[in-house]
Amino acid sequence: MQPSRTDAVSCPECGAPAPFRGTAVSLVCEYCGSTVVRTGVDLKLIGKVSALLDNGSPIVLGAKASVDKVPFEVVGRLQLRHGRGTWNEWFINFADGGVGWLSDAQGSYAITRPREKSIVAGKVPAYSGCALGQPIVVQGVPYVPVERRVASYQGAEGCLPFAAVPGDRYYSVDLRGHDGEFMTLDYGERPDHREPTLYMGRAVDLLAIGLHPLRKFAGWARGGPPA
């Protein structure tokens, strides 16, 4: 797999290298914890990120794998809080130039990639109308909403495609198909519209897709949660 393209710039806060990768818009400086946002050739700071919680994820930045014969690399992590728990969304760069997310929640993993909004715009309910267990048909495939979340950003590391400000909230619905299909409808900061950002993909097993390296935990042998 070819390494991701990096741009040689420095953190405006501490002067350390700030290796933006691909289409990344923001990154968290690994030396001082500042969030650096790139707009064209300009860089700006939006403050320090909140501390990431160790929620037992085996995934690490720089891990590589392949899905559907397309290699990818994990380049960033967004940690989100919902209720009393947290989960991770790992930002990934694909060798074909595309991007995606590796969802990591309680030992369940799924990889999704952004799709055209027109696929669902005006064809799916608003956030409040997505009833758990009631199928929504997208491109002829029935997807069942399995979780609705109002989440806030807990913290971040590495490179991300947008500036994640700790405390900002967003609304989303996760849906599953009968053959491992996985879909997320991201309504952003407003739940009262029917044009969510669409991500589609499928559930994965970390070892089956060859993700490496992985953090090691006593008793952890498969792609599920640590013991």
Results as ranks from 00 to 15, higher is better:
42 D>M: 08
180 G>M: 04
18 A>Q: 00
100 G>C: 09
109 Y>C: 03
151 A>N: 10
104 D>S: 10
159 C>Y: 02
22 G>V: 02
64 K>G: 04
167 G>L: 02
159 C>N: 15
74 V>Y: 14
88 N>K: 05
227 A>D: 11
203 A>V: 15
86 T>V: 05
132 L>C: 00
31 Y>E: 14
70 V>A: 08
124 V>E: 04
17 P>F: 00
156 A>I: 07
225 P>T: 07
61 L>F: 07
11 C>H: 02
206 L>I: 09
127 Y>Q: 05
121 A>Q: 11
217 F>V: 07
147 E>W: 11
5 R>F: 08
176 R>I: 10
25 V>Q: 08
187 Y>E: 03
122 G>M: 06
110 A>P: 10
63 A>V: 00
20 F>I: 00
184 T>H: 05
107 G>M: 13
46 I>L: 11
95 A>Y: 03
191 P>K: 10
4 S>D: 13
208 A>W: 05
221 A>I: 15
191 P>E: 11
87 W>Q: 01
106 Q>P: 02
24 A>D: 02
63 A>W: 11
79 Q>N: 07
94 F>C: 00
53 L>D: 06
11 C>F: 00
108 S>I: 14
10 S>C: 02
133 G>A: 06
123 K>Y: 03
80 L>V: 12
41 V>G: 12
212 H>P: 04
205 D>I: 13
150 V>L: 15
214 L>I: 01
207 L>Y: 14
111 I>C: 07
187 Y>C: 05
101 W>E: 15
185 L>K: 03
87 W>E: 03
180 G>K: 03
104 D>P: 13
68 D>S: 13
123 K>V: 03
49 V>K: 04
101 W>Q: 10
90 W>H: 06
141 V>Q: 13
68 D>M: 08
131 A>V: 15
55 N>I: 14
125 P>C: 00
17 P>R: 01
210 G>D: 05
132 L>R: 10
38 R>N: 06
148 R>C: 14
58 P>L: 08
107 G>F: 05
108 S>Q: 14
169 R>D: 08
103 S>E: 14
176 R>H: 05
155 G>K: 06
70 V>G: 00
162 F>W: 15
62 G>S: 07
61 L>G: 12
217 F>G: 04
70 V>N: 13
152 S>V: 14
197 T>K: 13
